[in-house]
Amino acid sequence: MTANTPVASTESLTKVYGDRVAVDKVTMTVQRGEVYGFLGPNGAGKTTTLRMLLGLIRPTSGSASATSSVGALIEGPGFFPYLSGRANLRVLARHRGLPDAEVERVLERVDLAGRGDDRFKGYSLGMKQRLGVAAALMGDPELIVLDEPTNGLDPAGMADMRALVVDLARGGQTVLLSSHLLAEVQEICHRVSVIHDGRLLREGGVADLRGGVSLRVRATPEPEALAVAMRLAGDDGVRRDTDGGLLLTLPADRAPDVTRALVGAGVDVHEITAAERSLEEVFFEMTSQKEAVR
């Protein structure tokens, strides 16, 4: 899947606007061939980081570098409103020395070929977004950076976009996907990083971040249940679930052992199930900003 060759990286990347630190010493690496999710609430510093990575804005300190073969959709598509979608892409193709056939290829790819001759200013938000993705795909770049590509898309459009990103990854293209739609990222990304208030909280594989399978236990009385759980899973292996139950970091096949131990200690077991934390739960734990994320 990944060739462990970085195609984009940042090192202590920092951007300061006045007395506000927008991005604070962010270090991350995107490997060739992976779909890399860049997560964070609105205003966390995702787009600023991507802008620095693409050379659109200068870092205050630190460094950012990316392969020169890059296509990007950054914070909404920007095109000439009086030109059609097709003509806009042809202008971009001229700038980059690409043939018109490439324009047709990417229009087909984002399902806009039928509306390619409509003026950009008449496009819906979703169509504009798809045209922006088409621009990023032109020339088959080594790295594709997509900043919130599903913004403005209806559910079917979002599913299409997810399929497109998966398809790109299968084709060996590296995708850096910025999003706050965590289910989407969990589904299609190999690795993710989480940024909050300009600081990178965590970088790693999706499975690593989710922490594997746990056992969810609802039992009373709770103090006795907690004592048994900590004896079995260790102090660090137990945490509270959002609904008041306990999450034990133990494999699912330990459920009978846990049940026996709880019952033996006089604890009533109401529920014991195998549970896998979603990326969303992990994200909320890290950022404690649930309201900022849909």
């Binding site: 659109l56 890059v70 296509g71 990007a72 909404g76 095109f79 000439f80 700038h95 990023a136």
Partner: peptide, 13 residues
């Protein structure tokens, strides 16, 4: 205003 410089430079031009 239209963001076309941004689109252009973001594609490595």
């Amino acid at each position: 205003g239209w963001g076309t410089w941004k689109t252009l430079f973001a594609q490595g031009v």
